[in-house]
Amino acid sequence: MAAFSPTQVTLNTAKPTEGAGAPLIASEGVNLHYGATQALKNISLTIGERHVTAFIGPSGCGKSTFLRCFNRMNDLIDSVRITGSIKIGGQDIYSPDVDVIELRKRIGMVFQRSNPFPKSIYDNITYGLKLHGMTAKSELDATVEQSLRGAALWDEVKDRLHTSALGLSGGQQQRLCIARAIAIKPEILLMDEPASALDPIATAKIEELILELKREFTIVIVTHNMQQAARISDQTAFFYLGELIEFDTTAKIFTNPSKKQTEDYVTGRFG
């Protein structure tokens, strides 16, 4: 088997969107403890607007945990303690007067395992819209179509919008989850290994979609798949054992990393 070398990676050559890259999310000295174990150690990084930022690293390195800090999904776990600061658009999201619900309404999330609600395809998408106070039928219909088209799912499901979402295939379910997340027009889209349970064709569709979505959304994606990170992201952060080892442009991480650990990981020597 040929050794995996950095030069074999297809890099993302799509041009960044006009005006993209202005700092949007800034974390400083973030530490996160689950009870007695420390899962994140002093993480500081800045994520640019309308960039795709990939978090890579071996299992258990804290990349998903860090992702969940941005929409405060870690709040749901009782024993979690977070120190340091995360600012989005200059606002500290861990300040005590933050309304978590308002925050989450502006940050979409796609999970590792597709998790459509056991409702119809239509209701899956309108659920978030209704939470946002959209009630007019015509408006709802238009947004459903628009977001399904956005998630490249419209043609496959337009004739069965009112059947259960659980009747869709795995890849379709995940694209439905993406459609559900983008329907509410979030400013940031968090994706936690969105393609890890999918076959290559579905994965390719989702990757295309991410490159498409990047024009409008700031995307942070956690992935196990390094080629995927290389193909779709502008910036890449490499995590190892709860620490941020290296954070740089994707091209640099995959062709000329400055840390030995990063090089070992992206060339497949461990992890």
């Binding site: 619900i101 979409g108 609600f117 056991p118 978030g128």
Partner: peptide, 27 residues
Amino acid sequence: VPRSYTQAALALGASKWQAAWQIVLPA
């Protein structure tokens, strides 16, 4: 009911109560 339903609802900006009443109870 899978926790992932609740998480999806919360991530969309539902309150805990809305997630329980509108998603988990019907499921």
